[in-house]
């Protein structure tokens, strides 16, 4: 495969890995701040880069059953959130293909 550079984003505010500063997403791609994760507040993003996706599994959440994958920072391998593969509740369909980043695991990076 060869060496690849981490992806770096343009944006007014860039969210990255708290551990290693890898870029994840930008305020322009943020859809909602009103989520809760494992460690408290979490954000929903339309697009996230520099993450590796885990295996899909079904999880019952406060808004119903979802098929999700955990996502990990490709640089430091820390788990930083998850991705929605499928929402079984019609009202939650908008989350499909979107990403959750836990506020505790990210920070504003340069």
């Amino acid at each position: 495969m060869g060496m690849t550079h981490l992806e770096f984003l343009y944006g007014t505010r860039i969210f990255g890995c708290k551990t290693c500063n890898a870029h994840f997403s930008t305020t322009e791609d943020m859809m909602s701040r009103a989520f809760n994760g494992q460690y408290g507040r979490a954000y929903l993003f339309a697009k996230v880069v520099n993450v590796r996706q885990g295996e899909p599994n079904d999880r019952p959440m406060t808004t119903g059953l979802h098929t999700v994958r955990d996502i990990f920072c490709i640089k430091c391998n820390t788990q930083v959130g998850w991705k929605y593969d499928k929402a079984y509740d019609e009202a939650q369909k908008y989350k499909e293909g979107k990403f959750i980043l836990e506020r505790e695991m990210i920070k504003t990076v340069d």
Binding site: E7, L9, T26, D29, A46, V49
Partner: peptide, 10 residues
């Protein structure tokens, strides 16, 4: 401002 650019067009 709200256009998300990827590394391809940087």
């Amino acid at each position: 401002g709200n256009e998300n650019r990827t590394s391809v067009d940087i």
